[in-house]
C-alpha cells in the first residue's frame, strides 16, 4: 500500500491524521456547508451580513417549504424524473443489445462500429445542437419532455455501449461457446446467459446515466422554451432570477436539486464508482 499505512505509524501520527482528515474535509466542502447554512437562515441574517455565524433562528422547514409554495420547484423536480428515468431505461436497454453484439460476434466492422459509439460519446454538444434542435422543431418534439428523453437516450447510448461492450468482452467466452454447441438460440443466450451476468454493469450504468442526465443543463436550454417542461437544473436558474437576493431560498432550491443524484450516489456507491473508474485499472 502507498503511502505507508498510518496504522503502522506511531500513536501521535495516527491521532494527528484522524484530526487532520475531518478538518481537510470541512475546508474542501466549505462552499457546500456555507450554502447549507444559508439555506436554513432567516432572510434577516443575510441582509445583516451574518453568513458564517450561527443563524439567529433555524428556519430550515420554513425555507424549504417556501421553495415549494412560492415557486414551481415541484414541477421542475417531476420533470427531471420524467426525463431521467425513461432515458436510463432506453439507453441501458439498447446498450445491452449493442454491447452484446459488439463483444460476442466476430465480424469485420465490429471494432469500427464500437469506435463510432466511443467517439460519438466525446463530441462537443455544440456540434449536435443546431441539427438536433431543428429536427425536434420539425417533428414537434421541441419543448416537450419526450424530445429531451429521445435526445438524451440516443446520446447516452454511446457511453452505455462503450461500457457494456467492454464488460461483456471480459466475461468468459466459453459460456457462450458451450451454449451454442448445445444449440441454444442466439437471443436465448443473450437473455439467459449474458443478461444475468451483466447485472452489475446495468446497475452501474443506471446510476451514472441518472446522474448525468439529471445534471444536464445545456440540452434543457436548447430543446425547451416554456417553463412547464424544464428540468430542475434549468428551473434552479429560473428560481435564481425569481428569488433575487433571497439567497436563503436560492440555496435551499439548489440543494433540493442536488438531492436525487446525491441520494443515488450514496445508495449505489459501489456501482457508481465502478462505473466512473472503468478503465482506470488494468
Amino acid at each position: 500500500m502507498f503511502p505507508r499505512p498510518i496504522k503502522a505509524a506511531s500513536a501521535p501520527a495516527r491521532l494527528g491524521y484522524q484530526v487532520v482528515v475531518p478538518i481537510a474535509l470541512v475546508i474542501w466542502l466549505l462552499p457546500l456547508i456555507a450554502i447549507f447554512m444559508t439555506s436554513i437562515r432567516p432572510a434577516s441574517d443575510i441582509n445583516s451580513g451574518n453568513v458564517f455565524g450561527i443563524p439567529s433562528s433555524f428556519n430550515m422547514v420554513e425555507n424549504y417549504v417556501a421553495v415549494f409554495t412560492q415557486s414551481q420547484a415541484f414541477m421542475y423536480l417531476m420533470n427531471s424524473f420524467m426525463i431521467t428515468i425513461p432515458t436510463v431505461i432506453i439507453s441501458v436497454g439498447l446498450a445491452c443489445l449493442a454491447g452484446y453484439a459488439l463483444a460476442i460476434y466476430r465480424f469485420r466492422v465490429a471494432l469500427p462500429l464500437f469506435f463510432l459509439f466511443v467517439a460519438g460519446n466525446f463530441v462537443p454538444y455544440q456540434i449536435l445542437m443546431v441539427p438536433v434542435r431543428d429536427m425536434s422543431v420539425q417533428s414537434g418534439l421541441y419543448d416537450t419532455i419526450q424530445g429531451q428523453v429521445l435526445f438524451h437516450g440516443a446520446f447516452q447510448t454511446g457511453f452505455c455501449t462503450l461500457f457494456m461492450r467492454n464488460f461483456i468482452k471480459a466475461l468468459p467466452f466459453d459460456l457462450i461457446e458451450s451454449a451454442r454447441i448445445e444449440g441454444v438460440k442466439e437471443w436465448k443466450i443473450f437473455w439467459y446467459v449474458v443478461l444475468p451476468l451483466v447485472r452489475p454493469a446495468i446497475a452501474a450504468l443506471s446510476v451514472l446515466i441518472f446522474t448525468f442526465v439529471w445534471n444536464d443543463f445545456f440540452w434543457a436550454n436548447v430543446l425547451t422554451q416554456g417553463e412547464s417542461v424544464k428540468p430542475i437544473t434549468a428551473g434552479v436558474r429560473a428560481l435564481n432570477g425569481q428569488f433575487v437576493n433571497n439567497w436563503h431560498l436560492v440555496s435551499a432550491a439548489s440543494l433540493l436539486a442536488a438531492v436525487p443524484p446525491v441520494a443515488m450516489f450514496f445508495l449505489m456507491q459501489k456501482h457508481f464508482i465502478a462505473g466512473l473508474t472503468l478503465g482506470a485499472v488494468k
Binding site: A98, Y100, Y105, G120, A154
Partner: peptide, 19 residues
C-alpha cells in the same frame, strides 16, 4: 449481431452521427 445492433446504431446515427 445486426439484429442486436441495429436499434442502437440507427438511433445513435440519427441523433449523434448525422448531426
Amino acid at each position: 449481431p445486426w439484429l442486436f445492433l441495429i436499434p442502437a446504431l440507427a438511433y445513435f446515427a440519427i441523433y449523434v452521427v448525422f448531426p
